[in-house]
Structures are given as C-alpha cells and as structure tokens.
C-alpha cells in the first residue's frame, strides 16, 4: 500500500538508453541488471526506455519487486530527438552522433564504452569529454557505480561548436574572400 502511494507521488523521470545502429547487448544487459535498476530507482528515476538496436538480448519488462522502474524498449526509430528531449538522464553508446545530440540538448549523459569493439577509437572521444566534465564515462561493468556516484551538478554545459572556421579555411585556400 505504502509503495503505491509513493509511486503516485513520484514525478515521472525517464532514463533513455540508446545504442544507435550498433549491437551492444552488454549495455542492454547492464541496464537491465537488478543492481543498475535499483540504483536508478534510488536516484529518483521512474521509467527506463531502451533503444536496443541490432542487439538480441531482450530486457525484461516485469520486475520481481512491486516498487521499481517501468521498463520499455524498442529497436530503432528514425529520430531519437524526442526521446532525448523527454529524458532526465541519457545512457548512450560512444557514437559521436548520439553524444553530441544529447550534449546539445543539455541532458546529463553517461557514455558506456563498448570494450568488445576491435578498433576502439570511440573511447577516445568519451574519455576526452569526460575529462572536460561534459559527461560521465563508464563500462558495462562499472555502470551501477557510476550511477551511484554521479553528481549531475558537477557537469559543465557543452557549448556547441560550428563549421564556420572550416568554411573560412576552405575559402582562404581557394583564394576567395573569407566571408
């Protein structure tokens, strides 16, 4: 009884998980694990929405405990912009597209690096941006610790870049006026 009452009081706070066009079962498994779910619930989140891409691991929608996250998932969507906008926390694979789309919306972001990839240059970007305090960086194994320890007020908002300098350099090289 008290649990239902508590649930009604809770403001809806969605965690959106995205793996892009990749197959990243280790991440889906990790967010589906009981300790990550518990940690998210403890931090006040109410819903977990997973975009699972080409992965074959299906998260369980039902939890053994009455008082826990609502879980839902889908494979692909033409645009994840609306999901990102409605989320209070984004957990993403390390693709630059999802990272910058999230940062430009000013959402707290945890990037989970796929350690199974052969040429893992993607961790470079996540680590650099974590060093600059724009996001948190984790692996599937350390995700629950990252959620437990994170303080989203410590994040520095990302100032979007622009392509003007490239355009100016190209013009300069071709001998056109820079403007």
């Amino acid at each position: 009884m008290s649990c239902v009452a508590m649930e009604e009081e809770r403001v809806k706070k969605v965690v959106f998980v995205t793996v892009g066009t990749t197959c990243f079962d280790a991440l889906v498994k990790s967010v589906d694990s009981q300790n990550v779910r518990d940690e998210l619930w403890k931090r006040g989140y109410t819903d977990l929405l997973i975009q699972m891409g080409r992965g074959c691991y299906i998260p369980s929608k039902i939890s053994e405990e009455a008082c826990s996250l609502n879980v839902d998932f889908f494979t692909f969507s033409p645009s994840i912009a609306d999901y990102l906008r409605s989320a209070s926390l984004v957990i993403s694979h390390a693709g630059s597209g999802s990272i910058f789309e999230t940062l430009r919306l000013g959402k707290p972001l945890i990037v989970v690096v796929n350690e199974d990839l052969m040429d893992n240059h993607q961790s470079e970007l996540a680590e650099e941006l974590a060093e600059r305090k724009h996001l948190f960086c984790a692996t599937p194994q350390t995700l629950h610790q990252t959620i437990e320890a994170m303080d989203s007020s410590s994040l520095i908002p990302y100032q979007p870049g622009d392509a003007m300098r490239v355009a100016m350099e190209i013009n300069k090289f071709l001998g056109f006026p820079a403007e």
């Binding site: 066009t21 693709g95 630059s96 597209g97 910058f100 490239v166 013009n171 056109f176």
Partner: peptide, 20 residues
C-alpha cells in the same frame, strides 16, 4: 559516411557559399 560523419559533413555544407 554514416551516422556522426554525415552530421558533421552536413554542418559544413550548410555554411559553405552555395552559389560557388
């Protein structure tokens, strides 16, 4: 390219002089 590559490229094309 795909994904992030295309987004970056189109941001460049967007600011190039389209008549040139």
């Amino acid at each position: 390219g795909s994904g992030g590559h295309t987004a970056e490229m189109l941001s460049i094309i967007n600011v190039l002089q389209k008549d040139t």
